[in-house]
Amino acid sequence: MTTDAPVISAKNVWKLFGSAPEAYLKDMPAGRSFDEIRSDGYIAGVKDVSIEVARGEMLVIMGLSGSGKSTLVRCFSRLHDITGGTIEVEGQDIMSLSEKELIELRRNKMGMVFQSFGLLPHRTVLDNVAFPLEMRGQDKHARRERALEVIKLVGLEGREDYFPRELSGGQQQRVGIARSLAIEPDIWFLDEPFSALDPLIRREMQDEFLRLQQLLNKTIVFITHDFDEALRLADRIAIMKDGAVEQCDTPDQIVLHPATEYVRKFTEEIDKARVVHTETLIERGLDGEGDPVDASASVQSLAKLLIQDTRSAIPVAKDGTVIGAMQREVALGILVGTE
């Protein structure tokens, strides 16, 4: 994770659906709620969202169906023209891009996996995967090589000549993934990319994306309904409701300190002990004695130790050096669910 300027920076972004959204937004009094906007005949797909995504970060977006996750991501990639606010990608306001610049940006920097795949029905698996390369004008031989490579990566070897309708849902989804892998974009938008996959392949794919992200410092915006998946992947999680981002923070903070009632409800069912890491629990001014625990360990993984230990403060160490200490009491509270 590097700290230079954010890759994506959205400020007060609005996306309204309706007959004349721009004019409506301009005259709309501030603080109008989702339902009020709807009674005016507009749907707030994205409602006053400000968010930044850093280089090399994996941001996971969660929220109920219809909360505007896909719409927000489509705004980032300018598949939707936003109604208000600004979005900058690598310092460039994407609404000011000309068509040609936009095409260049998409060809060279961005990739997307679609919720319902978006495969071209008349092209074989191979041709679908090679499609973005073809659009870039790569020669036939090179794009075939590359396409075969990623098809193998997603485990569809031997089905290169199949047509989408000859594949199962999960296989189709993997074609969509392969298509976006083929160009290895710097900025990746993944809209529920693994929803149709079985658990085994899903895990493999998650690992693959994690590997790519760490190896090549990719920036990824990932939508999912699956909390486990989010926890495995996320640097930060953004929780959306009615087009607005309710909270955007690390998983630990979200479960420990939900910003709104909605977020609290949303995360209620989650076993906090699995989410919270000891690093989060470090309290200032506290000193611990004895063997430290690892900063990246979850409370749950330390269950036995926490119960058997008798110390009131336990030191926490990162990469071998102690960086602070946590209260055993607090950790125990999380473990048994009273926190």
Binding site: R74, I103, R106, F114, G118, L120, F131, M135, R179
Partner: peptide
């Protein structure tokens, strides 16, 4: 979505 896939392919 097919059209969007086309857009994203540049």
């Amino acid at each position: 979505e097919v059209v969007e896939a086309g857009h994203m392919s540049g």
